[in-house]
């Protein structure tokens, strides 16, 4: 199994060369990163080239990396300053309230990504493609609906939940949220309690929307530990991640 994974990574590097930003093997899975400009060319090749034959797009999902590596409870410096309760700062979507804002921690052009999972039935192997949208305020990625038709709804979902626009998509409407919903709920700066709540107003005799009144409530603070409990060989990655935060 691991042999064929290495083989796939090698042939990917050989065929696409500089079109790939990176090729990685992690947890026995191959991931490649592609720029939006090269996406269509690479995906079409992955589907049609007899060396790959990824007939199916298993999954497509959007990711908002803006709070990657952010925690709510300092554990490293705690012996000097003492432990906080870890509930004060609104640093995650779970604790955000109406009107709160979160700063993006990622460098420009690394916030929104679309992640594709492919499956080849011929070779029985999987591949992950990641595409970062270059503009954080107006994230655009080309559509792959022409390559794999199943991308249609997946792209609508990623647009709905994260606001990633898929250029060339035939019918980019919201899919999971309510008719007339405002905002993109899976963005990290969208509060988990939402922005509005809805009720029936007996006087106006219709359903009305109001700012949300419930209190955000997260019981367990988000904690990152660099104690390498499970890490032997991925230890270096942890250090890098901590620096970013």
């Amino acid at each position: 199994m691991s042999n064929s994974i290495q083989q796939l990574a090698d042939s990917l590097s050989a065929v696409f060369a500089e079109k790939l930003v990176s090729v990685e093997i992690e947890f026995n899975e191959v991931s490649i990163e592609v720029t939006p400009e090269n996406l269509l060319e690479v995906t079409t090749e992955l589907r049609d080239n007899p060396e790959f034959e990824f007939q199916q797009l298993i999954d497509l999902c959007g990711v908002d990396y803006s709070q990657f590596g952010q925690d709510e409870w300092q554990t490293d410096d705690a012996s000097r300053a003492g432990f906080g309760r870890g509930v004060d700062a609104a640093t995650s979507s779970g604790r955000l309230q109406f009107g709160d804002e979160l700063e993006s921690l990622t460098p420009p052009g690394r916030r929104f990504a679309a992640v594709y999972h492919l499956l080849s039935y011929v070779f029985n192997r999987r591949l992950r493609i990641r595409v970062f949208a270059s503009n954080d305020d107006f994230p655009v990625v080309p559509t792959v609906t022409e390559v794999w038709n199943s991308a249609d709804w997946y792209e609508r979902e990623a647009f709905d939940l994260l606001g990633i626009l898929f250029d060339g998509h035939p019918d980019l409407r919201r899919i999971l949220t309510d008719y007339g919903f405002v905002g993109h709920p899976f963005r990290k700066d969208f509060p988990m309690i939402g922005n509005v709540e809805m009720r029936y107003d007996p006087e106006k005799r219709r359903v009305i929307y109001e700012p949300v009144t419930i209190e955000p409530r997260v019981l367990v603070p988000r904690v990152r530990r660099n104690d390498h409990r499970y890490l032997e060989d991925v230890g270096e990655d942890t250090e890098d991640g901590a620096d970013d935060a």
Binding site: F27, E29, D59, D237, T238
Partner: peptide
């Protein structure tokens, strides 16, 4: 109280 932490990275399991 805290749970366990996972190493940084990503997986797909099906």
């Amino acid at each position: 109280t805290e749970g366990y932490t996972l190493p940084p990275g990503e997986v797909y399991a099906s």
